[in-house]
């Protein structure tokens, strides 16, 4: 499944990096601490977090994550939005909690 399809399936709201929507998804990591995400994210992963600052984009880009989903209605910081557009890193927001998202991703076979 690619990001575009995931966005549709989960009814996510795109907030940045819309030029990077064709990447394939290979897995998922959930968490809010940068050095744990740095250790656990792999290429093609979806990162579910409630962190909204620039470092989310920096860590995702360095680890080549597929996209970021901000849970619980969190919105992306302005400077992080600019950076995500630059890096073509798709970022979404949703009112769903991380748990709800995890269940939905599981049901989709991710």
């Amino acid at each position: 499944m690619n990001i575009q399809e995931l966005c549709k399936e989960l009814n996510l709201t795109p907030v940045a990096g819309e030029s990077g929507m064709d990447k394939e998804i290979s897995g998922c990591y959930i968490g809010d601490l940068m050095s744990l995400a740095m250790a656990h994210l792999e290429e093609g992963y979806v990162w579910i977090t409630i962190q909204s600052n620039l470092n989310v984009v920096a860590v995702s880009a360095l680890k080549e994550a597929a996209c970021v989903i901000l849970a619980d209605g969190v919105t992306l910081d302005a400077n992080a939005t600019v950076k995500a557009d630059e890096e073509a890193l798709a970022v979404f927001t949703t009112e769903d909690s991380a748990y709800t998202l995890a269940k939905k991703l599981g049901a989709l076979g991710i």
Binding site: L33, M34, S35, Q51, N55
Partner: peptide
């Protein structure tokens, strides 16, 4: 609050 402080940075570097 920005997501730092797990105390995993130096261990990640070593690894």
């Amino acid at each position: 609050e920005l997501g730092f402080g797990a105390g995993m940075g130096l261990p990640n570097i070593k690894k």
